[in-house]
Nucleic acid binder design. Structure first.
Lengths: 335, 335
DNA sequence: CCATCGTTTTACAACGTTGTAGGCAACGTT
DNA sequence: AACGTTGCCTACAACGTTGTAAAACGATGG
């Protein structure tokens, strides 16, 4: 049977509240009393009932991280960092998978949210600012950017600049026909829109012009989508000597399709990705990519949440920018 | 401000309990009363306070899934299936990362467990049966096998047979010097022990003999460990024409190391893995592997937990076996 | 019109915890 | 000696919910 404060109190011969005080580290407890209580706690293997504590205090010590898909490595890696960063605050992280579906995202943002968790770190794919507007409840930190600024705290990286830089890098390496894989319909995928903008900026700045036939859409950003898009570009007959994939899994799929088509990377076609997932450090060839500082993203998100929880909930939303760097690997330069 | 039953009750002009009855689908509520209450619920956007409900009912509707590392793709994929299977029971899944450290696993198994969740699906790396013995509390389902049968429900696959089959497959393809990557110290990694046993069985059954110099340990089962182990085998000068890696990430690392050494896969060395992670379907070459039915594993685990929660908690522990199949891909046969 | 019975609704207590307010010693200060 | 101060501890109430028991209601039959 599970032990309660009352059981500990009876065993130690003190009041329930005194046990509570010991558990919570209240200072004014005589050392011998404290020792007696701690002994009783140990003997009974007492553990606080978190639901009761929450009911009383209004805090659960649990925050949620909601991501579209856990088996996209980027999110799995991010989840690990968030769990680590949250541990520093003594928080447990509930990880939730939305599948990127608007309905599920809405459920997570409002339903799950209510009462079970103290705060939410949320990487929305489909949800819009107005979906979020109605949620007065749980403090929330958004990851990744949309063009429209919502009412919530947010951690972003500068997608446009990063995309421009890596595209420029390709240009500097001598590539002139640079394709892009991963564009999406405007109402989904803000990341896609921003990375496309950076790609376009770089091309125009270099006087190369923007050729729509070089831009391949990808409904989702999985390996299979990257492979399919690459095959599409190849069969379309368009000339190309490099590909900028909007994330690493797309790029891994593209590598595969190029391999199947008998093309060498980087000799025939250079490939770059985005996210710096672990696979890209071991793929054949290894993958040049934009590497966002995931550890920093996670840390900033947790800090924003902590400030919001402890501080002024009505304070204006803040937006923090995380850094990134370019990782040049084999897929852009012969070894 | 968050709404309570009381607020809804006042608005609808009924008692708190009647609102509770409506929320919980109690039958004896007059239709017009029910309508009035539901209207009030909608207007106030009422959501039950789960902590209070739990405190009263002893159920949270949350189960936990504890895995060693989320950025090992196998666990990420498994997590996805568990979340899906649990949704069918209306459960939310709290995903926890233990890092495979015994201390953290113990915390998860006892600490987190208490009061916050109804049940736990647990994939332990370092924890032993005796660690688990002391936990009377939360129902638990273990994933993966240890040699010693613990006191908890369990979902396993037949590791020994699977390892034997895939090794036999290599032998049948004509390979004679088959290395193994992924062995571990006996006190950790039960999977390693079982897969090694299957590998050995197959070799002995084919009259090939078991050569310890062909077995490379791997402290963890990441890509980097696989690459390092492969390099070790290659520099040791031992002759080999195939490698059985105890999971896919090891195999991907091995592929990388072979590539760097200028060896072709499968022409010079065949490679097989275990787990069937998505990467293996897109790697160059694609990876032959043992494919456990992850969806089935997740479903069985959730079912076991459901039975335990609704049924007899003192019933003897059950062990269910999930199926697997061999996926033959490019890394064992030229296209 | 009353008794009976099933339906619908309600009051109350309890789940385990902690904040508030207060009491009792022991101590130091006037 | 009286007083305030401090340290330690306790009783009580409350967080939002639901199970229990019982009350109120309405319909039926005698």
């Amino acid at each position: 049977m599970r032990q309660r404060l009352k059981d500990v109190a009876e065993r130690a011969g003190v009041s329930v509240k005194t046990v509570s005080n010991v558990v919570n580290g209240y200072v004014h407890v005589r050392p011998d009393t404290r020792a007696r209580v701690e002994e009783a706690i140990a003997e009974l293997n007492y553990r606080p009932n978190l639901s009761a504590r929450h009911l009383r205090k209004g805090r659960t010590g649990v925050i949620a991280l909601a991501v579209p898909e856990l088996d996209i490595p980027y999110f799995a890696e991010l989840a690990r960092y968030v769990v680590t960063a949250a541990a520093a605050y003594g928080w447990t992280v509930l990880i939730d998978q939305t599948g990127g579906r608007r309905e599920q995202e809405r459920v997570v943002a409002s339903g799950i949210t209510d009462h079970l968790i103290d705060g939410l770190i949320f990487s929305p794919l489909a949800l819009t600012a107005e979906d979020l507007a109605g949620l007065d409840g749980t403090p929330m930190v958004l990851l990744g950017e949309r063009v429209d600024h919502g009412p919530a705290d947010r951690v972003v990286i500068d997608n446009v600049t990063a995309a421009r830089e890596i595209t420029s890098q390709l240009i500097q390496l001598g590539h002139r026909r640079i394709a892009a894989i991963g564009s999406q319909r405007t109402d989904e995928g803000a990341s896609a829109r921003l990375r496309l903008a950076g790609y376009r900026d770089a091309l125009l700045a270099a006087g190369l012009g923007y050729d729509e036939t070089l831009v391949a859409p990808a409904p989702a950003w999985h390996r299979a989508d990257g492979a399919a898009a690459m095959r599409g570009l190849l069969t379309s007959g368009v000339r190309l000597d490099a590909v900028f994939c909007f994330n690493d899994t797309l790029a891994l799929g593209a590598l595969r399709a190029l391999h199947e088509a008998g093309l060498r990377v980087p000799e025939d076609v250079a490939v770059v990705g985005f996210d710096d997932i672990e696979d890209g450090r071991f793929s054949i060839p290894t993958l040049t990519t934009v590497a966002p500082d995931k550890e920093q993203i996670a840390r900033l998100a947790v800090e924003l949440l902590a400030n919001r929880l402890d501080g002024d909930r009505a304070a204006p939303a803040r937006e923090l920018r995380a850094s990134y760097r370019l990782e040049l690997r084999e897929s852009t330069q012969p070894r």
